[in-house]
């Protein structure tokens, strides 16, 4: 069994305790990919990761889904994004990974006004952001390994240069023995972990996760949350969208709440 396999072996104290054991295995790891110090040097003083100013968004001619949204995300911070279903969490995420342009207001990412970016600059900024989609978006003709390696591959890297790194990360998220199978045969939770691994492999400075625990049982949800917390400790800013109150109660963090199109921040 690989050293960092997270698969829970139900021990005498039950699955939850086993999960905690698994987590204790991870905790000291400080996965070598995520040296936060190096990354922090890249932020200008007071630059921030995200800045929204009076952002409004409507789909087509519809009502404004987001109204006057103003907030910041600081380097090395952790926050939940929550709100009832249909409140606009995914919409906000899409604005954050440059999938949409706001109808009004200003968005800046890593100190750059996003309205002034050309396509190549968008690609460069994307590489600093890891995204976990609500629906995973794994490619079915790739193995799990190839899916996770994709962000490195599109940088033009040789397979040999990242093989060890990707293999290690896959072991770390407990997919060591599922590396060479295609996503269609993975379970929901396995897909979720593959999607998370793909978001992490490029060592993002900012991680966006849309309902990353939406498809898994509470135990796995808890483990994944720990994974994000661990990632944050090593220097990545995390925005985790969820409407799972129980999950948010497990970790004391800043909460961004969307209600009626407005965003309320609870520090």
């Amino acid at each position: 069994m690989p050293r960092w396999n997270l698969d829970v072996q139900p021990g005498p104290a039950g699955p939850l305790a086993a999960a905690e054991d698994a987590f204790r295995l991870i905790q000291p790891l400080a996965f070598p990919l995520y040296g936060g110090a190096r990354r922090l040097l890249r932020f200008e003083e007071g630059e921030g990761v995200v800045r929204f100013e009076n952002v409004g968004l409507r789909y087509g001619m519809g009502p404004e889904v987001l109204k006057d949204v103003t907030f910041n995300i600081e380097p090395n911070s952790f926050q939940f994004l929550t709100g009832p279903s249909g409140a606009g969490k995914t919409t906000l995420m899409r604005l954050l990974f440059l999938n949409m342009k706001p109808t009004r207001g200003l968005i800046s990412l890593f100190g750059r006004d996003v309205s002034s970016l050309d396509p190549d600059e968008v690609a460069v900024i994307r590489r600093r952001i890891g995204i976990v989609f609500q629906d995973f978006r794994l490619l079915d003709h790739f193995t799990t390994y190839e899916n996770v390696a994709l962000p490195l591959r599109v940088l033009g890297k040789e397979e040999a240069s990242y093989r060890a790194e990707v293999t290690e990360l896959l072991h770390w998220v407990g997919l060591g023995d599922r590396m060479h199978v295609m996503p269609p045969v993975l379970s929901g939770g396995e897909k979720q972990r593959a999607a998370i691994a793909r978001a992490l492999i490029g060592r993002p400075e900012f991680l966006l996760a849309d309902e990353p625990t939406g498809n898994v049982d509470p135990t796995l949800a808890r483990r994944l949350l720990r994974l994000f917390v661990e990632l944050n400790r090593s220097g990545t800013s995390v925005l985790l969208a969820t409407h799972d109150i129980a999950l948010m109660d497990q970790f004391d963090a800043r909460r961004l709440v969307i209600a009626d199109g407005r965003l309320y921040v609870y520090d």
Partner: peptide
Amino acid sequence: RTIVEVLHFVGARDGF
């Protein structure tokens, strides 16, 4: 289309 989207979201340049 999914492939185009995913490549785009993981930071591939349009030219790539």
